[in-house]
């Protein structure tokens, strides 16, 4: 059995680990709330853009627009993969990378060329080792509330590729925050652009378009795509923090169990030593009496 000294040292080290995991759990919890709120705040924007697009589409302006062009055959595809920078979030990274790998295999079998934009160090580390894809951009250390300029850099790159015909589709892979116990890796097509059909107020139906319907369409479509990417990034962040919180909670619980076990072992060892000493003393007394 280990000595009480050794056990004491181990308890101390587990305790300090526990403090760290506990702190990370609390930090993740508060960051998660903030990410969720930011995600909710973008809803009116998306709704308004959707409404305008629905109307524009009903007027037939979307036909022939390059961003809406659905190509018969998809020969090459751009994937945007969102993972974490530092891991420590349970199965988060492996889940999303599993979905990504599945897509790569599917593309490989169908003879579709593949390019990737990675967001997060983990995604980049994974993608850059794979031969089947070419990483054209890697973003890391994106803040929790990505500013317009960072978002635009990602969207612009995808759009240039799409409009130039270098890729026939752009998909984003991210983890959707469904409920606090359920976060699902998902894939969404961002180009060619789509939109949800929403109700359109009568007033927009009669509206004038300045300078022209096409130019308005261009601006709205671009903003809707931006909003989709923004949503993906934020919901992925919320999921990441949720899963990190759970992972750290488990780690804290494990540390507690470990501390209990080690304390028990230490007490046993100490009691054993006392009993032994007593036995030796009483043995000594017996020997003197004889």
């Amino acid at each position: 059995m280990a000595s009480t000294q050794q056990l004491k040292g181990r308890i101390r080290s587990v305790k300090s680990t526990k403090q760290i995991t506990k702190a990370m759990q609390l930090v993740a919890a508060s960051k998660m709330r903030r990410a969720q709120e930011a995600e909710k705040a973008s809803a009116p924007y998306t709704r308004a853009a959707n409404e305008l697009l629905t109307h524009l589409a009903s007027q037939g302006v979307t036909k022939g627009h390059p961003l809406f062009e659905i190509r018969d055959q998809i020969r090459s595809r751009l994937l945007i993969v969102v993972a974490t920078d530092k891991g420590l979030a349970g199965a988060y990274d492996s889940n999303i990378l599993k979905l990504y790998a599945k897509q790569l295999i599917a593309d490989d079998q169908a003879g579709v060329k593949n390019e990737t934009i990675t967001i997060g160090r983990r995604a980049n580390r994974f993608a850059s080792r794979i031969k089947g894809t070419k990483v054209i951009a890697a973003y890391q250390d994106l803040p929790d509330d990505p500013a317009g300029s960072q978002l635009r850099a990602i969207v612009d790159m995808a759009r240039e590729k799409f409009e130039a015909g270098e890729v026939d589709a752009v998909d984003i892979l991210y983890t959707e925050f469904i409920t606090s116990v359920n976060q699902m890796p998902m894939m969404q097509r961002v180009m060619p652009a789509g939109y949800e059909i929403t109700e359109v107020t009568d007033e927009i139906k009669e509206a004038l378009f300045e300078p022209s319907a096409e130019e308005v369409l261009e601006a709205v479509t671009y903003r809707l795509i931006e909003a989709q990417v923004y949503h993906a990034l934020l919901t992925a962040r919320a999921s990441e923090y949720m899963m990190r919180m759970m992972a750290m909670k488990n780690a804290t619980d494990n540390a507690n169990d470990l501390i209990d076990d080690l304390t028990l072992a230490m007490n046993k060892a100490r009691q054993g030593a006392i009993t032994q000493e007593l036995a030796e003393i009483s043995g000594g007394v017996e020997a003197l009496n004889e």
Binding site: E206, A207, L208, F209, E210, P211, E215, V216
Partner: peptide, 19 residues
């Protein structure tokens, strides 16, 4: 500020979508 210059919008403006 719009693409075609500044515009002022008052109540009862006709429906318009612009950049």
């Amino acid at each position: 500020p719009t693409a075609d210059g500044e515009i002022a919008v008052f109540p009862g403006h006709e429906p318009l979508v612009s950049l």
